[in-house]
Amino acid sequence: MRNTGERIVQNALMLVAFSALASLLLIAVFIFKEGLPFLLRTGLRDFLLSSDWRPQEGHFGIYPMIVSSLWVTFGAMLVGAPLGIACAIFLNEFVPKSVMRVTKPTIELLAGIPSVVYGFIGVIVVAPLIRSHLGGPGLSVLCAAVILGIMILPTVISISVDAIGSVPNSYREGALALGATRWQSVHMVVLKAARSGIVAGVILGMGRAIGETMAVIMVAGNSVKIPHSALDSVRTLTANIALEMGYATGQHRQALFATGIVLFVFIMILNSLAMAAMKKSVK
């Protein structure tokens, strides 16, 4: 009887263990089910490469949104990656462990600040600064890049800190014993060893930036057009979905789900890259 009980528990747990995988599949299936027929009907080329987004007239081209998403994400990386990596290096290599023990949790605590709050700061503080000093509407690629760059800092820092922290101390001591300064030991030895982990952190940060929705809606301006400068107002893939989902019907709605598919594929590619980098860093 006891054995039967154990077997039931084991089978139940096995079933439960597939919950995450099953959820993932369910999500994929339903997003694709809603969007894929539309995608096949319109044609991948027309959908991805046309700049004509006029849902009312039946024109669904998301090229501007793709370009905008890439620009905003790229900009966020320019802001967040150097700052985050510099932070991680400084905390690991140049300050006493006690400072690190306080700073790292503080930064991770800040990762919990809701994205809408960052978006709000963008609207209230960053956009007016851009408008008055650089011109343009303020709500722009630049504004989104700055806000997203700040938002991904905790992700980049926390993963990079772990990557750098896992470099064995003997490497550093080896370099220092040969007469290297702290900085020489860092850039010649430590960074090389921690490279894959840092790359993984940056890619995961990119994933977060490209997937962010509400904050981007607030700060990017949301005009459907291909940006010509960092001061132009843009609409990202995520913003496109969230802005129009509320009232979209029929084909229009399917087009939004198709946009979701594009986003899903982007994210999957980024995640696979990050996982590959992580694996490499474990070795």
Binding site: L24, I31, G211, E212, I241, F264, M275
Partner: peptide
């Protein structure tokens, strides 16, 4: 495979969860 699924799920942006929840729970 289970771990891979979990990692992938962790990276999915919230708007996709929103879309899915809307179509699956709210509508279907």
């Amino acid at each position: 495979v289970i771990r891979f699924g979990t990692d992938c799920l962790a990276g999915i942006p919230s708007i996709i969860f929103g879309l899915f929840g809307y179509i699956f729970f709210v509508e279907i």
